[in-house]
Nucleic acid binder design. Structure first.
Lengths: 177, 177
DNA sequence: AAAGATTGAACATTCAATCTTC
DNA sequence: GAAGATTGAATGTTCAATCTTT
């Protein structure tokens, strides 16, 4: 694949500095999600993914979104979203119906009960996000983290739409999260 | 819980900057693990967690570690580790036996075949880590990321041993307690 | 009795196959 | 036939209960 190319040879192993950076990253991506799940599970009986789904809907116009747009927003696969929304539907949090404009789409709507759950849950979740992520960092570090995340995101998936793009699909008045 | 305390009132919602930071974090913690899993699954038929387990053992003295120490190192629960090691054992990658020094402990050892798998897999994995995380960042950003990760780690779990501590357990001979 | 580890059942996730609508 | 979504089976994870050794 790169025969004949004239590249900087990258060392096959990580040096001590790089390993420390890498360790920080793995630790972050394993422990932070676990901590967020724990808080939401404890206080609201929701996984972080379920909460993201409901929060996404709560920000949308008419609290309604097509499944595929919602899947994009929560960065999950459509099959996964479908399973999770089925569970949320059984619990009365979300309702689904075919899109009248095009029957191939499915519209998911946050019910009144789902809305109340989000409204009741959001402050505690936001507080936890502040406590674990925002408060421990200086403003400068928050900016750095944004830039770093953006660079890694591009490397992981160059095709990926920017946050702003995805977010605009959602439209946004009343916004928990 | 905090009646009468004199605190800075924290706004219940995130402002635009904070939300951007938060979005970068959630995106990072959901997409990066998926990308790493994909590479390892494709090239070696291993999940990232399985790889971490085997890599941890490969660095240890005699390629052997007590299950509880290994669980600490890979930041997973003991039940989870036990299930995963059972699978790896069935595949001939790892062997278990009671610790002769104290029968309550179980010693897990990387087999010759497991070692060969790690040796064959590591370069590709390291290359992927470079490609997705290290290469897109400047040296300064790598330092920043380390500092940021450390701050968040402390917030998530103040009791948690520092990376250096956990790592030293790995390299140190099993201390007869 | 406590520490370390394992097990079994409930639950969640993944992926290919399928279904429906355009 | 293609796009959007769902389902079913296999796989993985979680958690409480259990077992063994000290």
């Amino acid at each position: 694949m790169l025969a004949g190319m004239d590249e900087l040879p990258e060392p096959p192993w990580l040096d001590e500095e790089e390993r420390a950076t890498w360790f920080a990253v793995t630790s972050l991506v394993t422990r932070l999600p676990a901590a967020l799940d724990a808080q939401l599970q404890r206080d609201a009986g929701l996984s972080h993914f379920e909460y993201q789904v409901m929060a996404g809907l709560s920000m949308a116009l008419d609290r309604t979104l097509r499944m595929s747009v919602l899947a994009d927003f929560v960065e999950g696969s459509l099959p996964r979203l479908s399973q999770v929304v089925s569970r949320l539907e059984r619990r009365g949090m979300v309702a689904r119906r075919p899109d009248p404009a095009d029957g191939r789409f499915t519209l998911a709507t946050l019910t009144e009960g789902g809305w109340k759950t989000v409204v009741a849950t959001a402050p505690g979740h936001v507080a936890e996000v502040r406590r674990l992520v925002l408060d421990p960092l200086t403003k400068a570090q928050q900016r750095q983290l944004r830039a770093i995340g953006e660079r890694i995101a591009v490397a992981v998936d160059p095709q990926r739409p920017s946050p702003a793009t995805v977010f605009s699909e959602i439209e946004a008045p009343p916004s928990p999260s």
